[in-house]
């Protein structure tokens, strides 16, 4: 286990400059905003602020020092999990993000499940019978999946599933049935790439000598495929799954908005339209940290699943 620990420690150390860079970019984003954040915050109430009030707010927000001091001031607060207060609701951004996470995590989980349920059988089928009907269906399905705009698929599903058939609720989070349509939209969008990826890596693995050995031993075909081949064939998909999960945890902005799903993505869009820059900044920082942590987890899973990496 020693080399694993050393590797993970190394990765953690490499993260340090990345996290510092992330914080720098997030801080700089705030500087892109036209106008003075203190004034914008005070104007959110709809009253024209006095000069004194602006100065006092600037001081309270730590905006009156030189830029590098402002950055350190901000970083200090961020490290204490203080992402500031929303301009529009004046609630702490960190708490708001935490409150909205469960909905997004639920949607992420269900979407991944939908993607796996679509991609795994189709990918395996395509690899076992290349060139046959199932393979062609997999190819068409994969093409549609990457070409279909998620916002259009959402509207179609709402129209047929909720308006016409009245099986599913149109929007919002209300019971099990409400997660199905958004999860299906996101899952189908992801599935295409996995169908092709599982197909090609399974085809590669099935040509390996150890599969021949397993066949020569007289193992049943389904055992060879499920236990011996799939474990290795699914490794490339794992990395991609990490990237996808990270993206979904950012709140699939478009789908959450269309389905009025009370998650992080919808929160971010509302903040964008309300010009609530503090929320946007907090959201971007939050997302970047989530991505970094997920990538680290994926690396660690690779170590667990692929002994060859451990030996290197």
């Amino acid at each position: 286990m020693r080399p694993i620990l050393r590797y993970l420690l190394q990765r953690l150390l490499q993260l340090f400059p990345v996290l510092l860079g992330i914080s720098g970019i997030t801080f700089a984003l705030m500087r892109l905003t036209p106008g003075d954040p203190a004034e914008i915050m005070l104007r959110a109430d709809g009253i024209k602020p006095t000069y004194e009030a602006i100065e006092a707010t600037r001081h309270a927000m730590g905006l009156d020092g030189p830029v590098h001091m402002q950055y350190f001031h901000w970083l200090y607060r961020v490290l204490h999990l203080d992402l500031g207060h929303s301009y529009s609701s004046s609630r702490p951004v960190f708490t708001e993000l935490m409150n909205r996470s469960p909905a997004t995590v639920l949607l992420t989980g269900c979407s991944v499940l939908a993607a796996v349920l679509i991609a795994l059988p189709m990918g395996i089928g395509s690899a076992l019978y290349p060139g046959r009907l199932l393979d062609r269906m997999g190819r068409v399905c994969a093409l549609l999946s990457v070409s279909m705009p998620s916002y259009w698929l959402s509207l179609l599903l709402i129209y047929y599933g909720a308006v016409k058939l009245r099986v599913f609720p149109v929007m919002g989070m209300d019971g099990v049935s409400s997660v199905i349509l958004p999860a299906l939209t996101l899952g189908f969008g992801m599935a295409g790439v996995y169908i092709r990826l599982i197909r090609s890596s399974l085809l590669d693995v099935l040509r390996m000598p150890y599969i021949k050995a397993a066949r020569a031993k007289g193992l049943q075909e389904w055992i060879i495929i499920t236990i011996h081949a799939l474990r290795n064939a699914l490794l490339p998909s794992l990395t991609l799954l990490g990237v996808n999960i990270a993206g979904l945890l950012g709140g699939s902005v478009i789908v959450e908005t269309i389905f009025s799903w009370p998650g992080i993505g919808k929160y971010a869009i509302e903040a964008i339209f309300a010009k609530d820059y503090i929320v946007i900044q907090g959201y971007v920082l939050w997302m970047a940290v989530v991505v970094v942590l997920i990538n680290l987890t994926v690396d660690w899973l690779h170590l667990l699943l692929d002994p060859r990496i451990r030996l290197r």
Binding site: P17, V18, G21, I22, L32, P34, I272, Q281, Y283
Partner: peptide, 24 residues
């Protein structure tokens, strides 16, 4: 490569959303 590492840590849609939001 380190610069791209940092930028790639942000999901692309989210960073472009944030920039659009800041610029209008």
């Amino acid at each position: 490569m380190r610069i791209t590492d940092i930028l790639l840590a942000f999901p692309s849609l989210i960073l472009s959303l944030a920039i659009t939001a800041m610029l209008g």
